[in-house]
């Protein structure tokens, strides 16, 4: 427990992207058990992963490397679960949280190679797509400050999680058989789409090939997309 909690703490601090993080912000990780939390923090400080000052906790260099490893495992596992197995993104993220502590580095390397081969094997420009996205990533370091080398692409999320106005790249459609009309309208992997409107129930309007298309929430959540950073 303490081992998993300490990894979660490191990952959480890294993910905030801030220099300093208050201990109180980490309470959720220990499910409110402050005793457990302070034990883990002390342990991490002893091992030289964290330093504490008046403003809060910050990662040491050693801590940053460790945190990056955990975050990478998380990202690779999540993309494997969503892209290959078609798991719901929320669920996939939770599962990945559990697996990241026990999975070996070798398995992660193999999984990553597998994912990469798979995407470049696609005929429809999926490979082209993420390489372009990866290229753009360099031009917008603010997006991934401190995350360089974690993943080679932007996270793949479902359309319903994106913000209004974002330019997106379709990477996969889950439960495809049910939504074959999407192909007819041009929503296929590799296509660039714009999220025009999003209602609070996550019904969306997207622009694809110059046409506006309304999708109900259950359709939108099955479209997996990758954010494209506009210059």
């Amino acid at each position: 427990m303490t081992f998993e909690l300490s990894e979660d703490i490191l990952e959480a601090i890294l993910n905030t992207g801030k220099e300093m993080v208050k201990v109180s912000n980490l309470e959720d990780l220990a499910h409110g058990d402050t005793n457990e939390l302070s034990k883990a923090v002390t342990c991490l400080k002893d091992k030289g992963y964290l330093t504490e000052s008046g403003d809060g906790l910050s990662l040491t260099d050693k801590g940053t490397v460790k945190a990056a490893q955990v975050a990478r495992k998380h990202a690779v596992l999540t993309s494997f679960l969503t892209e290959v197995l078609g798991t719901e993104p929320d669920h996939a993220s939770k599962e990945a949280c559990l697996m990241e502590h026990t999975v070996s580095s070798e398995t992660i390397e193999r999984l990553d190679t597998f994912l990469e081969k798979r995407s470049s094997g696609h005929k429809t420009g999926r490979g082209r797509g993420w390489r372009r996205a990866a290229g753009q990533e360099k031009t917008s370091p603010q997006e991934h400050e401190g995350h360089a080398g974690l993943t080679k692409r932007n996270p793949i999320v479902s359309l319903s999680e994106c913000a209004e106005g974002s330019l997106l790249h379709v990477s996969m459609i889950r439960c495809f058989g049910k939504h074959s009309r999407l192909i007819d309208l041009g929503v296929i992997p590799g296509e660039l789409i714009t999220l025009r409107r999003k209602l609070d129930n996550h019904a969306v309007v997207i622009t694809v090939k110059g046409c506006d298309i309304a999708l109900s929430p259950e359709v939108a959540e099955n479209i997996m997309v990758e954010r494209c950073n506009t210059q």
Partner: peptide, 9 residues
């Protein structure tokens, strides 16, 4: 089967 709405504006 129940399909979601996919509707061109």
């Amino acid at each position: 089967e129940q399909y979601g709405m996919i509707l061109e504006m």
